[in-house]
Simulated assay, not measured.
Amino acid sequence: MVRRLHRLGIRSGSRLTVVRQYPFHGPIIIQVDQQRIALRYAVFQVLIGGR
């Protein structure tokens, strides 16, 4: 998972902006450096330190 996120441009200290959050633990759309990426809810929780 870490390698995939690095390839997408998400690194430690990257500024993430939540663009859209779907209900019922659906996907989260984030924006990083002018690109939008959809993440599973569980992956997003790990990124923000929720788990």
Rank of each mutant, 00 (worst) to 15 (best):
V46L: 07
V46D: 02
M1E: 10
L47W: 02
R20I: 02
R36G: 05
L5F: 04
L16E: 01
R3D: 10
G50E: 04
G26R: 15
V18M: 06
R40A: 10
R15M: 11
R3I: 03
Q21L: 13
T17Y: 10
P23M: 08
R4L: 07
I30N: 04
I28K: 08
I48Y: 04
V19E: 08
V2K: 11
Q45N: 08
I37Y: 09
R51N: 02
I37V: 13
R36E: 06
Y22P: 02
I37C: 09
A42K: 13
Q31R: 14
V19W: 11
G13M: 03
I29N: 12
T17W: 12
A42W: 13
R36T: 06
R40N: 01
V46H: 03
P23R: 13
G13Q: 06
Q21K: 10
A38Y: 03
F24D: 07
L39V: 01
H25T: 04
P23Q: 09
I28L: 03
I37T: 03
S14R: 03
G13E: 03
M1S: 13
R11W: 05
L39F: 14
I37D: 00
D33G: 11
A42I: 06
V18Y: 14
R7A: 11
L8C: 12
D33N: 14
V32P: 05
G26T: 06
Q35Y: 10
P27H: 15
S14E: 02
D33V: 07
L5C: 01
